[in-house]
Nucleic acid binder design. Sequence first.
DNA 1: ATGCATTGTCTGCATATGCAGATATTGCGC
DNA 2: GCGCAATATCTGCATATGCAGACAATGCAT
Lengths: 161, 161
Amino acid sequence: MAVLTIQSCAARSSPGRLVRRIDKLMANLVESRFEDTGVSFVQWIALKVVRDGVARNAGDLARELSITTGATTRMIDVLEARGFLVRDRGSADRRVVQLAVTDEGHALVEQLQHRVVEAWNEVLVDFEQDEVDVVVAGLIKLLAAAERVCGCPDRHKELAE
Amino acid sequence: MAVLTIQSCAARSSPGRLVRRIDKLMANLVESRFEDTGVSFVQWIALKVVRDGVARNAGDLARELSITTGATTRMIDVLEARGFLVRDRGSADRRVVQLAVTDEGHALVEQLQHRVVEAWNEVLVDFEQDEVDVVVAGLIKLLAAAERVCGCPDRHKELAE
DNA sequence: ATGCATTGTCTGCATATGCAGATATTGCGC
DNA sequence: GCGCAATATCTGCATATGCAGACAATGCAT
């Protein structure tokens, strides 16, 4: 408690700075390997969570991607136009837009998934399995703490995973 | 090595997903406490690294913020217009734009720094000091690994910190 | 000293996203 | 059934950023 001091709050070694930089670098790294497909990293994540049933409609998807529903609408527009995804205005509740990946989208997710794993494994080559586990565990705890303080609106149904 | 599997590469517990979400949440959290100042989180970081001498010119600042020099130019425009920062076309090399915070900028950094520390400490309230150290150490190693794979262009002078 | 490659910053244009209001649908109380 | 609050998505507009080329200053080879 009271763990961060003035000196460390925005230093190179502050958690905030580190997560930001890692996020940017990894997104760029992965995206550089998607170039032939014209699909962005975020678009790939969108397709993946829809395919895996983690996001079934537009609102779910927005929460999964940590972007607004407005931004999500437009991303779905693009993915639908490119034939990777289809909208389906639900018959039960006609407000919600059910999402499903097409065969083409499914194939794309599969293909790019291997590239993502490969990139991460190149980065993690000098890590032992338990080192990774420790980092991930720490991040999970940190995220939970941040969500608590933010009174996080997306404490949504825990689609076990 | 070969630590990430297909299953875990984009799951809720993947390092990539976690760092992205933590970054977004913390940026929003901090920014919500800056509202009265009209300064964004990134703008505050910019002022801070300039004040601390970590970034002395526009190029340095771009690397510190992980954004392009073009975006940096415009951010400097705003901060200069608001009187927090001054440009000074260097006399030694007239290409570089030396940066310095004004008295007003200095005061702002000081004031907001306390809010940032406070926010982080609220998040970290259930962490022991050594838990934080472990997470930070893991992130530092992860960042170094990512920079290695990216052939990172900003392995710039190690302004010790 | 001249020409040319390099470097640092800036600018024009495109995209991604946030925000706030609009629209459509649902469900609830009466 | 009617009116109204709540919900899910969409749209218009503003901003932040990336990218690629422009421009200015420097320094190096000759």
